[in-house]
Design a protein around this nucleic acid. Structure first.
Lengths: 144, 144
DNA sequence: TAGCAACTGTTGCTATGGCAACTATTGTTT
DNA sequence: AAACAATAGTTGCCATAGCAACAGTTGCTA
């Protein structure tokens, strides 16, 4: 492993790419008056797929801190997109699920998100995608 | 391009990997009492390389918002690691550079950062690194 | 059964990220 | 020269990120 290799800023490139993606998504959301943030979208998408989950599960699924989940959910509840439901057996637990308005929001935003994903990948192949996945997974696994 | 391909969460993977990297770096900084954050380190590294820059240049070089630069620099000035110097020609401009303590901090943290970069890449090759760079650069270029 | 550990979620604090509005300065135009 | 546009940086606001401390609940164990 050369010195150049070690000192080359992959951290920086990851950060820059992610920021550009996030900004682009947010600008498109805003331009089409979707009235949500990118991270709020990620939680909505996850809640649509899992129907009924807890804060903890959502945190694991989205790779977010549980305090962040707590606060984003609070915003989504205020917007009427998510509802909380206490567990009968375990009174510590709170189940989260999309309201009908939340499901509508998911369906409304989904196609825009698909289009944006296509844009990011337009000049890349499925092999590239597999490579990126493999490398990122490896880095992830390498970190203690 | 298949539907699976489009809907697969590369955004999520980028985000998760970057977070894990950032957390690991921060924990190592804290464990060794470096008394800086990861982003503060990135600015110090940049200021070491460019010796004398403005907020604007720093923002471009680090892919950060200029308001974020302004605030991080404020923290670094308070820590005595950076000093501001007004331009004589253009009184809107402020030049930034490391203080001697800032240079010491850079030298103190550098080897730790090198080691951590090695850890992230330990099971990957230079070809992998080139691939990641190529793919991320392409995604970056694809986004409007 | 009393005590304690583990678990679920919230709140406070600080840092980063991004947009809009603002001040101050400089450059351009007429 | 006056008016205006462009530039450099700061501040206010809200959202996300993560740590520590906390409250309430549940499960385990002496």
């Amino acid at each position: 492993m050369t010195d150049t290799f070690v000192s080359n800023p992959s951290f920086f490139k990851l950060d820059a790419t992610l920021k550009k993606l996030r900004n682009y998504w947010q600008k498109m959301f805003d331009a089409q008056q979707k009235d949500i943030t990118v991270d709020q979208w990620l939680l909505i998408e996850n809640l649509y797929k899992h129907k009924k989950t807890t804060h903890n599960e959502l945190a694991r699924n989205t790779s977010k801190d549980i305090t962040t989940i707590s606060r984003i959910i609070e915003l989504l509840v205020k917007k009427g997109l998510v509802k909380r439901e206490a567990d009968v057996q375990d009174r510590r637990k709170v189940y989260l699920q999309l309201t009908p308005a939340g499901v509508d929001k998911y369906k409304d935003v989904r196609s825009l998100v698909y289009d944006m994903r296509k844009i990011g990948w337009k000049t890349l192949t499925e092999t590239d995608y597999a490579e990126l996945t493999r490398i990122l997974d490896t880095i992830y696994a390498n970190i203690p």
